[in-house]
Amino acid sequence: MSDDHHSHDEGSHFSDVELRVRALESLLVDKGLVKPETLDKLVDTYETKLGPRNGARVVARAWTDPAYLQRLRDDASAAIAELGYGGMQGEHMVVVENAAQVHNVVVCTLCSCYPWPLLGLPPVWYKSNAYRSRVVIDPRSVLKEFGVALGDNVEVRVWDSTSEVRYLVLPERPAGTQDMTEDELAELVTRDSMIGTAKL
């Protein structure tokens, strides 16, 4: 793979996609449509600062504050914005709650829409055709491959994201965590548990 980035002769070499990205970016900068510093900051935000931690904070707050949970049910976008998260295309959020007999899982069959401001960048499998097509048809077997075994009495609900609505799964609070602080609880919450492909 390193040959994509530099050849063994004197000059440097960009791959085709790298050249296209540079071409488009420099044209947009020339036209004043993109500011390099804004772009750098944005990329940096998504690369290093977001990740699934914002989503984990929402979940931990919902576990510890019943009034917040109710606001999350009533208007998830507004409740999430209370914690300072939102913006971009993640503003129309719906939170779906797991319970003893309900398991939720999220997909985007069209094009891998994903609540980026809460979860960072989507994992490769989320974008794969296999996941997108199969989880709708046979969620139980897909979840089983992820190591999520569900009893026959558990209802599986599959939520297909659109350009208008994004879903966040609210996992069940693990047993034995009643003495943990909100910060400690946030540490327990994984990305996959908020997509619905893992339990905690």
């Binding site: 791959s15 996609v17 790298e18 990205v21 947009l28 449509l33 993109v34 772009l39 944005l42 998504y46």
Partner: peptide
């Protein structure tokens, strides 16, 4: 480059 392409899209959308 993937991050750059991603960031450009969000910047243009935001604009």
């Amino acid at each position: 480059w993937e991050a750059q392409a991603f960031g450009m899209t969000l910047t243009l959308f935001d604009g």
